[in-house]
Design a protein around this nucleic acid. Structure first.
Lengths: 110, 110
DNA sequence: TCTATTAATCGTAATATTGCAATAAACAAA
DNA sequence: TTTGTTTATTGCAATATTACGATTAATAGA
């Protein structure tokens, strides 16, 4: 049905999935990598750097903004985007706990 | 169009997105958490633990198997699933490099 | 062999995602 | 005001994902 039954999962599981999902597209990975690399705020040049049409980039930026991983500041006619470092750290902590599950127990089976 | 233009991204970016995508559904997060928790191999009880129908669980398991994050061993009429720890570590290393980008540079802008 | 059990596959419906052309909105500068 | 620049939004087509009933395949045990 294309619809995820999120109500049967814990908020922890849904939160991990929500963050993971936004990283589940190479354009959003590329946007984040570029923002980290440039560091100084970046505006419309993301369109030329990434290589997708302007509305498509705008849509990906919106998804990253919805999770508050980036923030945009209006500067005249353009918008300056950068990583929201506080929220990045919060997200990182959640994802790292998930990735580090293998530390919790160490018995091997098959 | 629903089709990702993966050819315009680096293999690194595509790999990160591929792993992230498989974590982008709470059922697969829950399956992995359960496999880590039980540690001893788990078979069909995933269906009752997770709360989705058997074909749905089977489909999610298939996606996790495709990325070799889990492996299944046939035991009589049932299948014993567990984490593929070697590949989990490889995946973790890739994802952690992505998450730790914030360590690379530290200037703040907006 | 027949039956029960377990898991995979098929088929299908509902919904979500991706991408872009066209357009709108917001603003700076002439 | 008009023009140009930049970004967001709308609308739509193509494809992907999620979920499950029905079925199949494989095997264990009677």
């Amino acid at each position: 049905m294309g619809i995820t039954k999120s109500e049967i999962f814990t908020s922890d599981q849904n939160e991990i999935a929500t963050f993971a999902k936004v990283f589940g597209h190479p354009a959003r990975v590329a946007i984040l990598q570029h923002l980290f690399k440039i560091n100084a705020c970046v505006c419309g040049d993301l369109v030329s750097v990434i290589g997708l049409a302007q509305p498509t980039i705008s849509q990906h930026l919106k998804e990253l903004k919805n999770l508050e991983l980036i923030k945009g500041t209006i500067e005249g006619t353009s918008v300056c985007y950068c990583i929201d470092k506080d929220n990045w750290l919060k997200m990182k902590s959640i994802m790292q706990t998930f990735l580090d599950q293998d530390y919790a127990e160490s018995t091997t089976c098959c």
